[in-house]
Design a protein around this nucleic acid. Sequence first.
RNA 1: GGCGACGUAGCCAAGUGGUAAGGCAGAGGUCUGCAAAACCUUUAUUCGCCGGUUCGAAUCCGGCCGUCGCCUCCA
Length: 496
Amino acid sequence: MTLRIYNYLSRQEETFEPLHPGFVGMYVCGPTVYGDAHLGHAKAYITFDIVHRYLEYKGYKVRYVQNITDVGHLVGDGDEGEDKIGKQARMEQVEPMEIVEYYTRNYFRDMDLLNVRRPDISPRASGHVPEQIELAQILIDEGHAYVSGSNVYFSVASWPAYGKLSRRKVDELEEGARLEVDSDKRDPRDFAVWRAATPGHLMQWNSPWGQGFPGWHAECTVMARKYLGLPFDIHGGGLENIFPHNESEIAQSEAAYGGDFARYWLLNNMVTIDGTKMGKSQGNSLNIQQLLTGDHPRLSQPYGPMTVRYFILSSHYRQTTDFTDDALSAATRGYERLIGTVGLVRQMLARQDNVDSTVDPQFEGVRSDFITRFEEAMNSDFNTPQALAALFDFNRAVNTIINSQQPVSNGTLEAIDETYRQLGGNVLGIIPDEISTQSGGSAGLEDSLIQILVDLRAAARKNKDYAISDAIRDQLAEAGVVLEDRPDGTAWKITR
RNA sequence: GGCGACGUAGCCAAGUGGUAAGGCAGAGGUCUGCAAAACCUUUAUUCGCCGGUUCGAAUCCGGCCGUCGCCUCCA
């Protein structure tokens, strides 16, 4: 079974074949670290985390590079705009690099919570200014960029292929109603490779053209090239950046270094909140932290990070994801169903009731059917909704087996657990290695205390003292521990 | 103005030519001391609307209506 990927360059699904067999180079546009990570980041980086994980599942050695944008790009258009990081630094009265450091840490913290595996390299734009200056110089030497004042602009007219990713016709770009004419540009379509710093600009570096800072497309071009070489296999990012950012990355790279830039372009679609665009300017921005704490007017409750991840994976990455409180609540239930079964299997496994290590042959058939369906789904452009559908069918089969009143061998339980760990854990990242009690350091003590209560209740039930047994159950439920009486004893799980 | 995406059951969401996955919610049943969980059955003769192509279309083509987005920093 071969992996097929929708390539935005060709606007078609293509068979994926890396340039160097067995190895994949992947670059994904990273965050600008001047604010907390929001839902858009969650969708984008969970998407490419899935790509990363599935490629490794397929046996590829992947090098995943994702930049940290920490040089100031402009808030507005034109020369008068303020540098975003500089602006935040001024507001918080700290050094720009403190802003960068603070939000970079928050970013990784939030991504860790969402079980997004870290990239192999997280290069910072500020650490690659010489490379960006070099890019500008090469473009000037090649006749694809020019100096105007202390700015360096890429000349779109000099590069006929400009527009090949976004399918915009270069000739028509001028008609864009909102393109403002920048006085230093020879052509309004041109974009900055290097910008002159205004006196108040906090982040600036020396260059052959004076004090300034890199244009906002330059870092991706030079860092992808530096760490992956050209061309590299996969370039990922958000669809809203297809133009001008991604388009300009390509043009710069191909004009400066020749050859192709990236071979497969994967772009995730955007998120909306209650059906409309999320954005700072819309005033409906929703941070990952707000989602996890429930501290937002549109949310009725906090949502667990795994629920959020499950929710994002329940629609395809090239579709928009609409965040609504109702949809998240439904996802919570669905996820609980899944994880409840996994937890039960692990509890049964821990008891070692049946040490038979053979695997039920009938289950083996269910399992291999599931793996086939799962892989087929993932092979068709990372179709996680289909993969999840297969997982739920597998889950139902597992529930049937473990509730069958027939003894289930340890071998079968281990095979079930292994399947969950492989596909639900390693590939989808929604089934953690440890679930049961989810209670931090005191887990051992907590487990013991709950078990004492469960045993007391069992004794009460034996005496048909249901007033006592129900009181124990109700009060535990109130405390967040739900009991389930099963033929083989009482199972419990912590719900908060 | 230019470009693009989407419209599938009450809700979320797969499916791109062969007769509608999965999840949530609802209904009935099994199990249970009662629950919970789980399992079984059930819930779209139909995929925004109107035409066309085809033996056959949610899927292709044309038109219309509606929603959202990009073109400006944004994942």
